[in-house]
Structure formats: C-alpha cells, structure tokens
C-alpha cells in the first residue's frame, strides 16, 4: 500500500500526476475539442455560418484563408485532433504515471506544448497576414496556452525519473517504455 507521500517524485512537495492536477486539463481539452471541431465543420462546409460576436466577417476570412488550407485537412480539424490526443494522453495511466508510464507523460507534453505554440502562431497570422480576428479561434488559442504550464510539471517529473534511471545505468529507452518496473531508484 502506497501512501500519498510515496506518490510524490523525490524532492517534490506535490504529485503532478494526481487526478486533481490532471482532471481539469482533460476537461479543458474536451472543451477545446468541441470548439475546434465546430470551426472545422464550418471549414468543411458542413455548417453554413460561424458564430462571431465581435469581429464581423473576421471569422469567415480567417477560417477560409489560404493559410488555413495549406494542409489537405482544414487547420481546425487538425486542432480538434490534437485536443483529442491531449484528452486521451491526459487520461491514460494512474496517479503515479510520472514514473510508471513516462512515455505517456512525454507524449502528453509533446501534444500540449506544440499544439499551444502552433495556436499562437496561427493567432499572430490573423492580424498580420489577413487583417482579421476570429473570436472562437482566439478562445481555442487561450485554451491551448492555458494547458501548457500545468502540463509541464508532470513532464519535468518524468524527465527527472529518466535521468535517475540513466544514472543507475538503466537504458533510457527501457525506462521510458516500462517505467519504474520493480526497480528501487525512483524513491529517495
């Protein structure tokens, strides 16, 4: 039986993999999924109009811009897929996954970090290239940026775990996939 204190990474005052830390991130990712999916359905033509309270035709111009069609799939559909990966990667694993499933934690970080930064790049393109703003695109960007900081603490705990594994001459690749796996070096 492990105690709450055992679940904390060595030298940490809290457990970044606890459900209190992760649960709301999953919820926020789902909100982002629905917003981005709605915008993507508009880009696909499934929905005829898009909600835009402030910037007039801004959303239409942004969502039908050449930049949004650089890839074969509209960018908001890709955004929705990224949010789905965030939600799933946020949900997999137990409350000690920073040491039991480092690969999921690092996948989670890789999904949250770049998704947020790509959102910001797209937001900067709105005024610079199109001279237009899109309300729901901004909301989606705020959601993805909000997730970055709270997701990164868990990534840090897993990277520290991998560093300790390497210091104990365990192959990093093995530690990444199998996690703690019965070894004792994860505690201090």
């Amino acid at each position: 039986m492990t105690t709450i204190a055992d679940r904390r990474p060595p030298g940490w005052t809290y457990n970044p993999s606890s459900w209190a830390e992760r649960g709301w991130l999953i919820g926020v990712a789902l909100v982002g999924f629905f917003i981005s999916g709605y915008l993507g359905l508009y880009q696909w033509g499934v929905i005829d109009s898009v909600w835009e309270p402030w910037f007039g035709s801004g959303s239409e111009r942004v969502l039908h811009s050449p930049l949004s069609r650089v890839l074969p799939v509209p960018d908001a559909i890709l955004g929705a897929m990224a949010y789905a990966i965030d939600a799933v990667a946020g949900a997999i694993g137990g409350a000690t996954r920073w040491k039991t499933m480092p690969w999921v934690v690092i996948l989670f970080g890789l999904a949250v970090g770049p998704l947020g930064l790509v959102s910001v790049l797209l937001v900067t393109a709105q005024p610079l290239l199109l001279d237009a703003w899109c309300t729901l695109c901004l909301v989606s960007a705020v959601i993805s940026i909000t997730m970055i900081g709270p997701a990164m603490d868990e990534v840090l705990a897993s990277l520290q775990f991998l560093k300790r594994a390497k210091a104990h001459r365990r192959p990093i690749w093995d530690a990444l996939w199998k996690g703690e796996g019965g070894t004792v070096f994860s505690g201090s």
């Binding site: 060595p10 940490w12 840090l156 990277l159 560093k163 300790r164 210091a167 104990h168």
Partner: peptide, 15 residues
C-alpha cells in the same frame, strides 16, 4: 520540484 528544470543538466544522481 526536485531541483526543477536545471536539475536535468546538472550532474548528480538525484535531482
């Protein structure tokens, strides 16, 4: 945070 991000490139076993 177990020594934080800088612990990753500081030498030493435990961060």
């Amino acid at each position: 945070f177990g020594g934080g991000w800088t612990s990753l490139w500081r030498p030493g076993v435990d961060g």
